[in-house]
Design a protein around this nucleic acid. Structure first.
Lengths: 236, 236
DNA sequence: TCGAGCTTTTACACAACTGTCATATTTATT
DNA sequence: AATAAATATGACAGTTGTGTAAAAGCTCGA
């Protein structure tokens, strides 16, 4: 599985370095930013999985940045843990009010930091849409992470599952192999486009039963890619 | 029966000590926290049976903590009694609004405190599902803290029991190892995720008998985690 | 302080899944 | 009908994730 990426925002590079060491011990990838501006640019740019934000940035801009992040639709879902020095306790609460997901007081034990980061990451990951999707007897249930054909569970690999989920939430529309790679495989992976064909094939196969063949819902759009459609196949 | 554990949250250690003495007279275990932050960490970590929370923490964070606790799925079920000083009576109402289970005005008689605590614990205790859960001949009885297969008692460790209880009360849904750690181990414990595998293994083993193998009810969701399901796995 | 009973970690084997290729098969074009 | 282009299919090997057992660590009570 891909590592989580945490952005460390602190003006003291020594502290950043210390935190980085702690996190990398736990297989968490780190990026660093020394100022609020730098941090903001990075967040918009790379969408880290979590931001560790020092309250005491020069210009008291830590809380400013937090507020700004939470105001913007694009960044409001990025979890933030505030770092506060002892004696700034009042600020913690303010931080929470503005939407920090947790706070931790310096100095802290690396273990505790890791534990909190993991806890926040875990909770953040849970927020996805979980209601089942049904198409003519083909049901995909994100909660149980399963697919059913007429209430009967169907077996398929993780990639096929994600692929089908994407299709069922984006029907009646053709996607190129490249787009599918982006959406299903996720951004920066280098994979042959032909690989998509293979997974389409596997998915179609999995959707076949003795009685019904739901594989035909995934239609080939020659020269373009594929499309999930409930209206029978037709000519271009 | 195991003693109940109450977390006392107050910034004055003298008051904490006084309360502690009173509670321990009644065989109630106590933990203490002097700040909202400390308290939150403790609650997530150890899930006390009840929290005695002073409204007047530095930074007026008592009410904040309460709000935070009630917002988070993991902690919303922990009962809270608010401690308010005379003259802050208006706050009581606010506290109740946010979800406190009761409130007490300082100064209070120890007898009264004990009485209220017991009342809240009693109420909370009743909410716990004490009725046995049965799935196709596999029975878990929270009251006796035992598991039966066709009326025959089954042996397993405490963690396996909690794990099974969680699964049986949360069926047909995939949980990541991280989520299982959150729910079964409790909050911020810092444990390898692979540890879950081992307990799953032991639980599955415990659920096997000469005749039936209930271990298969716990299904592996590759790349995701595990799921308790009564709809059998299926053919490829 | 020691030991029993659990829990957690570790290490390795194994099975499932993935990505790629080589080879059919289909579709479009002339 | 022949040819070119694109997709479908089956097989293979490398990779990843999980199962399993055994060892190391804890905890609590005698």
């Amino acid at each position: 599985m891909e590592n989580k990426c945490v952005l460390i925002v602190d003006d003291e590079s020594a502290i950043r370095e210390m935190i980085r060491v702690a996190l990398e011990m736990s297989d968490i990838d780190c990026m660093e930013a020394g100022s609020a501006q730098e941090a903001h640019a990075h967040i918009v740019d790379h969408k880290p999985d979590l931001v560790l934000l020092d309250w005491m940035l020069p210009g008291a801009s830590g809380i400013e940045l937090l507020r700004r992040l939470k105001r913007d639709e694009l960044t409001k879902d990025v979890p933030v843990i505030m770092l506060t020095a002892k004696g700034e306790e009042d600020n913690k609460i303010q931080g929470l009010d503005v939407g920090a997901d947790d706070y931790i007081t310096k100095p802290f034990a690396p273990r505790e930091l890791i534990a909190r980061i993991k806890a926040v990451l875990r909770r953040a990951g849970q927020l996805e849409d979980e209601s089942a999707i049904d198409v003519e007897g083909l049901t995909l249930d994100p909660a149980s992470h399963r697919v059913f054909i007429q209430q009967k569970p169907v077996d398929m690999g993780p990639t096929e599952f994600k692929l089908l989920k994407f299709f069922m939430t984006h029907r009646e529309r053709a996607y190129s192999r490249g787009q599918l790679l982006d959406h299903v495989w996720g951004g920066n992976v280098y994979v042959e486009e032909r690989t998509v064909d293979v997974h389409i094939r596997r998915l179609r196969k999995a959707l076949q039963t003795d009685h019904i063949d739901y594989g035909t819902l995934i239609q080939t759009v020659r020269g373009t890619g594929y499309r999930f459609s409930t209206t029978g196949a037709n000519v271009a």
